[in-house]
Computed example of a mutant assay.
Amino acid sequence: MVRWGARLLFLGLAGCVESYLPAVIDAPNSYLVVDGFINGNGVTRIKLSRSINLAVGTTPPAETKATVYIVDDVGARYAVRETSTGFYKSDSVVLNPARQYQLRIATTGAKAASYESELVPLKVTPAIDKLDWAWQGDYVGIRLNTHDPQQQSRYYRWSFLETWEFTSAYESVLEYRGGIIQSRITPIHTCWRTEQNTIIKQGSTAQLAQDIVVNQPLLAISNRAERIKIRYSVLASQYAETAPEFAYNELLRKNTEAVGTVNDPLPTQLTGNVHRIDNASEPVLGFVSAHTVQYKRLFINRADLNLPGSWRFDSPYATCTTTIELAPDPSEPQPIYIPYTRVFATSDNVPIEYYVDNGMYLGYTGSSRACVDCRVRGVNAKPGYW
């Protein structure tokens, strides 16, 4: 499964004195990149794109209008249709674990060709027994337990989706609507932000007598992080892997996450399990596996952390300030009066409240949209699971 974008897999080394730029950086080839896996108990999602050379700073182009199928070893087919540019999605299906599966892809246009992944067994993933957290010094450590009583899993990979509640720097009770300042009807102070963590987290029990994973670390969160200030949730996904997939992802992890110092391993060329049918020598980037997925969600409330009430969290709003618009402003030759505005008639600025002095309404206070409107960083609709 590709996690590092559509880049060529032949990586150059940076010398200690001068950079070495191999010819492949300017290579004109554009190879197919296949990112995703065959989901045995849900929806299969596949991203298709094309590689670009390392000298190009643009986003890799999507591979569109392809025909994609999941095919098993007795010929049954399941369509994986393009739902947005370069993204393909199947119906939710439950696959037979006794069968083997592959992905077949037919591209169109100038680079029309047919590709297929190797037939692979459907790995049945055991349930996540426990997902919890514990203090690890100045960090909140998220950890996981699982086991396979059948002793068939042995190789595991985990991914996780983080969601947290946050508030903007200022709570606005006014909004510009219909050409005037009015009471706010659209809430923009409290939002929820969701991020898919992209690190490759794997573990193996192949060298152990029992197929048991205990307190497997998933991630560590600083005790100052904004994400744990109000309420935080993480959805862990667990996948049982084959030994070849585990080895592929481990090399991918070393190539993308452990490169940068003299003590890190050298970048390695990856060999996936997808090939072009009429030209097996053409590189295709990606490893298509097949497995069921197990999920478990954890919530952490601020009160659970037992931090002092005066505890200071890091904030992206640390530099935010407010401004005042007088209405009327005595210094203006053509003053405006409440409920009209000039400052907050633009989308860049948001009114917060009326500016009042000695009981007199003299104008408005406000700030930039980035400081007031939490939707700049998240969504104001509470998740259904919250």
Rank of each mutant, 00 (worst) to 15 (best):
R276S: 00
R77E: 13
Y317P: 03
I212G: 08
A280M: 00
A106E: 12
G137W: 07
S90H: 11
V259G: 06
H147F: 14
R375T: 12
N349V: 04
P187H: 01
A243P: 03
T194F: 05
L32V: 01
G86S: 04
T190K: 14
Y355L: 09
Q136T: 01
G5I: 03
F246Q: 05
N349C: 13
L174N: 07
S168F: 04
P335W: 08
W4C: 15
T58M: 05
R377Y: 14
W386N: 08
P97M: 10
D304N: 15
L174S: 05
G366R: 04
T44D: 10
A112E: 15
T125C: 10
I277T: 12
A370Y: 12
E195C: 10
R342M: 06
D138Y: 05
P121G: 05
P60T: 06
S281W: 01
F246K: 04
V33K: 03
L252V: 08
S331Q: 11
S153T: 14
C374G: 08
A27F: 10
T321H: 13
L13P: 00
K229T: 07
G86W: 12
I46S: 04
A345Y: 01
S117T: 01
L208V: 02
D314T: 12
F160C: 07
H147G: 05
C371E: 09
N249M: 13
M360P: 00
S30W: 02
G363S: 04
K201R: 15
F166E: 01
W135R: 12
N358Y: 06
E226R: 03
V124P: 01
T323F: 06
S368R: 12
D373M: 03
A290D: 09
W386C: 06
T321L: 10
A134M: 10
E116A: 11
G359K: 07
Q238K: 09
G141T: 03
N263R: 13
R157N: 04
S114V: 06
Y170D: 01
T261E: 06
P265T: 12
